[in-house]
Amino acid sequence: MRHLSLKYITLVVAMCASALLSLSIGPRQDVFLSDLLSAFATDELSINQSIIFDLRLPRTFVAILVGANLGLAGMILQAITRNPLASPSILGINQGAALGMTLGLVFPSIILLNLDFMAILGALIAGALTFSFANSAKNGFNSLRLILAGIAVGAFSYAMVRFTFILDDDLAREVIGWTSGNISASNWQDVKPLIVWTLLGIISSYLLAHKFNLLALGEAASQGLGANPKLIQFMGAVIAATLTAITVAVAGPVMFIGLVIPHFCRRFFGQDHRLLLPATMLAGALLMSLADIVAKLINFPYETPTGIICALIGAPYFLYQSLTVKGAKL
């Protein structure tokens, strides 16, 4: 157990270090971390204090929360499908959320509540479609069909999003602005709902974590141990879809975190979902804040969408992992 807590501490320290590094990087080079510390001691913020407190800090928070939510969503999806390929982007949920928002932008009259809610709606519908294609009355739930259905739903949703790129410049620019995984314009208004949803996600998935362990034994076995596999799968899917949608609403569809992070964490923390839960959240946050640092530096002083950087880091790792894991079931 001491061994395990050491791993957690390593993750926490790495995440805090990358968050602090990200905070100290920006187009204004006269702003330092010390401005953040002194910001807490004064009532009236100076300009440098305001830059780091009002502009950079919420952005770093968004990066951390988006990464944590996607890591968690990926873990839940892999648990309930018992499929190592399951992740928000492979099951089409990411793209469904982007489509929900895009529809809201193109047809403002159909917006229910707000754009965030449109993203959640899109994610839930895409997830529901994917899962219903994977479930057939005759053969039951099929893991391979799940992935194929997810790819189809995702490709369709993203094709619809991309269709708007050929529409009028202004509309296209707005859709790209919302869906390109750019968090450079984040502010405290984005952080508040994200914190609320993340807390709800943590609590509900922690309550389900033990059930996920039972599910890993197989549907029949878990039923024998008193779990209701269909209900757990349904609840898990709704939580994962909502967590994903809320990240899409602030940061656009960020791929690969949900796929890579659970694999990475299982390597070091084992198969128990109660231990994996904090690990996937911390590691997801770490990857996203590292990506954020690279996004700020790669074309300095201009920004590169963080989503692209995530894919640049995540894709090679996933390849490495698939090639090196012994007896992989992929």
Partner: peptide, 10 residues
């Protein structure tokens, strides 16, 4: 060039 508030201040 897409510009954030911090970049505009530069």
């Amino acid at each position: 060039v897409e510009t954030s508030l911090e970049q505009l201040s530069v």
